[in-house]
Design a binder for these strands. Structure first.
Lengths: 190, 190
DNA sequence: GACGATGCGGAGCGCGCGTTCCGGTGGTCA
DNA sequence: TGACCACCGGAACGCGCGCTCCGCATCGTC
C-alpha cells in the first residue's frame, strides 16, 4: 500500500475523488464506467485498486460516516446534552440528505454500512449522545441507538420525497422530546 | 375491453393477480418473466394486456391506493376526527409496509403515483381527514396534505429499516399532536 | 540509457431484463 | 362443423452494466 508506484497512488486518489463526487450525486446507481471516465482512468484501473464497485462505494461511504462519528465524539462531553443532541440530529440529516451515497448506504436494509469499523464508531457515538440527552431529561427514554438510526433513515426518506421542507424534520424532533412521550403515555392511560 | 375473447379476459385476470402477489412481495424489482410464469402465461401475453411493466405496476398499485382512498372517504364524516385521523394514519402505514409495491410507488421521487385518478382521490381524502383533525385541535396546524404524505413515506422507510418496531411510528404520531407543536413553539420563543 | 516489473486502458464477455416477433393453437360464430 | 382470426407462448433481440483480460506504456532501478 505504501510501496505502490507513484502513478498508481495518484490514480487511486483520482478514483476515490471521482467516486466521492459521482456517488454523492447519484448514489449506487451511477455506472462504474462513469466514475472511471470522471477520474480520467480506465475501468480496469478502478478494479486494480478496489475489488468491486461495492467495495469502492463502501470505502467512500465509510470515510464520510467516520466524519460524522468524529463530530459526535467531539460533542460527547459538551454541556447542555439536550440541545447538543438535537442540533447534531438535525445536522446529520441535513448533511446526509445532500449526499445520495449516504442515503443509499443507510437505507440499505440490515444496516450493512454499520458492520465495518467507522460504522460501528458512528453507532457508538450516536448512542452516547442519545443516552446523555435522555439522562438530562430532554429526550424520551423509550428509545435506543438502533431506533434513532431508523428514525434518521426515515427523515432522509422524507427529505428526499419533499426536499427542503425543514418543518417535517421538526415533527420528528418534537416527537423525540420527553414531553411528547409523556403526552402519549397520558393519552393511552385513561 | 368488454368484447374480449373469454380466454383473453381470463388471462388478463391471472396476470393481474400474479402481478399483485409478486409486486407486493418484491416491489418493482421483480422480473416480468417471473410474473408471467407465476400467472402461467408467456411474456408476450403480459404485453398484450399492458403496454409495459411500468403500466402493469401502476395498475396494481393504483387499485390498492384506491382502496385506501375509499377507506379514508368513509371516515370523513365520523365523530372524533382526532382519533379517526391517527388510527387511519397508523393503519395505512401498517398496511403499506406489508406491501413492497406500495412502498416503491410512494417512495418514488416526485410522487408519480399520485398523478393518476386513484392517487388524486387518496390525496384529497387524506387532506380532508387531516383538515378535520386540525380543526378539532388534535393535530398541529402547520402541516398540509403533501407534508403528511411525505411523513408517511418516511414512516415506511423506518418500518422497512427496523421492521415491527411499533413505537417508532408513535414518535412521529406524538410529533404530529398539537401539543408537540406548542412545545416546539415555546422552546424556540424564549 | 536499458531492462524487468508494475500498472494502465479500453475492448470484450456474460448476464439479466424489458420488449418484440412470429408460427401455431384454439375460441367464436355462421 | 368448419373456417377465420384473435390470441398465445416463448425464443430471440438489444441494451446496460459489472467485471476481466491482455497488449502496451510507464516507472523504478542498475
Amino acid at each position: 500500500m505504501e510501496k505502490m508506484r507513484a502513478d498508481a497512488r495518484r490514480n487511486r486518489a483520482k478514483v476515490l475523488a471521482a467516486a466521492e463526487e459521482a456517488f454523492a450525486l447519484d448514489g449506487l446507481a451511477v455506472p462504474l464506467d462513469d466514475i472511471a471516465r470522471l477520474a480520467g482512468v480506465g475501468a480496469g484501473t478502478v478494479y486494480r485498486h478496489f475489488p468491486s464497485k461495492e467495495a469502492l462505494f463502501q470505502a467512500v461511504v465509510l470515510e464520510r460516516i467516520g466524519q460524522f462519528a468524529e463530530e459526535a465524539r467531539a460533542l460527547a462531553t459538551a454541556d447542555r446534552p439536550g440541545e447538543v443532541f438535537f442540533d447534531y440530529f438535525v445536522r446529520v440529516i441535513k448533511q446526509a440528505s445532500l449526499n445520495r451515497a449516504i442515503c443509499d448506504a443507510l437505507a440499505e436494509s440490515g444496516g450493512h454500512a454499520f458492520k465495518a469499523g467507522a460504522g460501528e464508531e458512528f453507532r457508538a457515538a450516536l448512542a452516547e449522545l442519545l443516552a446523555r440527552a435522555q439522562a438530562a431529561g430532554a429526550v424520551r427514554p423509550d428509545l435506543d441507538g438502533d431506533d434513532l438510526r431508523a428514525l434518521i433513515v426515515g427523515c432522509l426518506a422524507v427529505e428526499r420525497y419533499a426536499p427542503g421542507s425543514r418543518h417535517l424534520v421538526r415533527v420528528v424532533v418534537d416527537g423525540l422530546r420527553a414531553s411528547s412521550h409523556a403526552a402519549s403515555a397520558a393519552a393511552t392511560t385513561p
